[in-house]
Nucleic acid binder design. Structure first.
Length: 264
DNA sequence: ACATTGACCTGAGAGC
DNA sequence: TGCTCTCAGGTCAATG
């Protein structure tokens, strides 16, 4: 779930549910998910306060309290947030539970514990410290920047797209989708791409991510042209009706259509 | 300095 | 059914 579009949807979800409500109690369910922070510090930063706004950089979600501290959430491969009233609705792998004074709860669930919970005083500084590149959908990220990145790395284009130091937000699923829409093979060396191919990738990165957000990052609502819902199951490319292949690129599984995404 | 690999953690699903 | 094996939408430290 949690690549840029998913986290953007989480952000919008929190904005529409959990802002401006007093937090009565915070329960840390998995201490091992806290990074550079103690449970006591988290509780102190949140209890008695309220969230007033949310922000996102790449795959990180930031929730600001009125006392200037931000709660930082990263979702690993399996994380999500959910807002609910009925205590029996608490998700199975809840790692952080916030009880609001209105009787509702916000849970951060992360089955595989590959995510992270921490605090920051400044999301911009946090992104710098973590050496995150520019967010793929935020101002500052442009074609020139993108071209510069791709021309200056020795890695496969899929790996470059997924490298959070270069561009923040794109992961395994959406890199496959962007490459498919641009008609480029995942193993193509970034350096070997020509200007036209780079422009296609750049434009597709933007439209794929935006379309996914539009569809609430819900695969069942994705545009029919997306390859993603066909990675498993029928494994059929909608463009050419041929079979979708699977390979390994940079240690991650990559799905692609060998006819529509010819290796250069 | 940069790119690639393995480790981290847990559970679901496939195959026997 | 129960066991084993593989894989999973991420990142970091160790390695080349």
């Amino acid at each position: 779930m949690p690549e840029l579009p998913d986290v953007e949807v989480f952000k919008q979800y929190v904005e529409s549910t959990a802002l401006h409500k007093k937090m009565d109690a915070v329960e840390i369910r998995s201490k091992d998910m806290l990074k550079n922070v103690s449970g006591r510090e988290i509780k102190k930063a949140l209890e008695g306060h309220q969230f007033v706004s949310a922000d996102r950089h790449g795959k990180y979600l930031f929730l600001k309290t009125e006392n200037t501290t931000w709660l930082v959430l990263h979702f690993g491969m399996t994380g999500f947030v959910t807002y609910f009233k009925d205590p029996t609705k608490e998700p199975a792998h809840n790692r952080l539970l916030i009880r609001f004074s209105n009787g509702y709860h916000l849970a951060y669930d992360c089955q595989r514990k590959l995510g992270e919970i921490t605090l920051t005083e400044d999301p911009g500084l946090f992104a710098e410290e973590r050496q995150l590149g520019l967010d793929a959908l935020k101002p500052g990220f442009n074609l020139d920047r993108f071209k510069h990145i791709l021309k200056n790395t020795a890695s496969a284009v899929k790996s470059a797209l997924m490298n959070q130091k270069y561009i923040a937000g794109i992961g395994n699923i959406y890199s496959d989708e962007i490459l498919f829409q641009a008609g480029i093979h995942p193993d193509t060396k970034s350096k070997e791409l020509n200007d036209d191919e780079i422009a296609r990738l750049y434009n597709q990165a933007e439209s794929v991510l935006k379309a996914a957000i539009e569809a609430h990052a819900d695969p069942s609502r994705f545009p029919a042209s997306f390859i993603m819902p066909h990675r498993r199951g029928d494994r059929t490319c909608l463009k050419c009706k041929g079979g979708i292949e699977k390979t390994k690129t940079g240690g991650r599984s990559a799905y692609y259509c060998p006819r529509c995404q010819e290796r250069i």
